[in-house]
C-alpha cells in the first residue's frame, strides 16, 4: 500500500504543479503550495481509500491548499479574485492519465513547426527571457508573446487529441 501510494503521489506531481500554477500564476508559490499539498497527502495516507480514484482526491487537497495560500497572501498580490479562481479551477478536468499526458507532450513537442520549436526551446530549455528571445529571433516582443501563446495552444490541442485517441495512442 505504502509503495503504491508513494508512486501515486510521485506520479501526480507534474499535474498538480500545473494545476496549482494555473490558479496562482507564480511558479515559486506554486512549488511551495505543491509541497504543502504533499505534506497533507502524506499525513492523510491512512485516510485514502484505494478503491476510490486517487487523482480527484489529490486535486481537492491541492485546491484547498491554494485557498489557504490565498488567505495568507495580501489580496493585491493575488492573480485572480475568488470568482476567477473558481472559473479556472471549475473547468479543470481531473487528469487520470498523467503519464499518458507526459508522453503526449513529448510527442507533440516533436511535431511543432520549426519556428515554434525554436521558441519553445529558447524559453523552456535555455530559459531565456522574452526580451532575449525577441532579440535572438529578431522578432518584436509582442510577436514573441503571441507566438509562444500559439505554440502552447498547438501543444495543448495536440495533447488532447492524443488523449482522446484521435491521433492514435500517445
Amino acid at each position: 500500500m505504502a509503495s503504491s501510494y508513494n508512486q501515486l503521489v510521485t506520479e501526480i506531481q507534474s499535474s498538480l504543479f500545473a494545476f496549482i500554477f494555473s490558479l496562482i500564476g507564480d511558479p515559486e508559490a506554486a512549488n511551495d503550495i505543491l509541497q504543502e499539498t504533499n505534506l497533507v497527502l502524506w499525513e492523510k495516507e491512512s485516510d485514502y481509500d484505494p478503491s476510490r480514484p486517487f487523482h480527484p482526491w489529490a486535486y481537492k487537497i491541492s485546491y484547498l491548499q491554494v485557498l489557504a495560500y490565498r488567505k495568507r497572501v495580501r489580496s493585491d498580490r493575488l492573480l485572480f479574485d475568488d470568482d476567477l479562481v473558481d472559473r479556472v479551477a471549475g473547468g479543470f478536468e481531473v487528469d487520470n492519465h498523467v503519464s499518458d499526458r507526459r508522453d503526449a507532450l513529448a510527442k507533440c513537442l516533436k511535431r511543432l513547426e520549426s519556428r515554434a520549436t525554436r521558441l519553445v526551446q529558447l524559453r523552456y530549455h535555455q530559459e531565456l527571457s522574452l526580451t532575449a528571445i525577441a532579440e535572438q529571433c529578431e522578432m518584436s516582443l509582442s510577436s514573441v508573446k503571441v507566438a509562444l501563446f500559439r505554440a502552447r495552444k498547438v501543444l495543448a490541442d495536440c495533447i488532447e487529441r492524443k488523449l482522446i485517441g484521435e491521433e492514435g495512442p500517445a
Binding site: 494555473s22 505543491l34 523552456y124 501563446f149
Partner: peptide, 25 residues
Amino acid sequence: RRQAVVHGMLLWNRGMGARRCLNGI
C-alpha cells in the same frame, strides 16, 4: 487554463519542480 497547464508541464519537465523534489517531495 490550457495555456497554464502546458506552461506548467514544460516548466516541470525543465526541472523547475523535479529538480527540487526527491520522490516528488
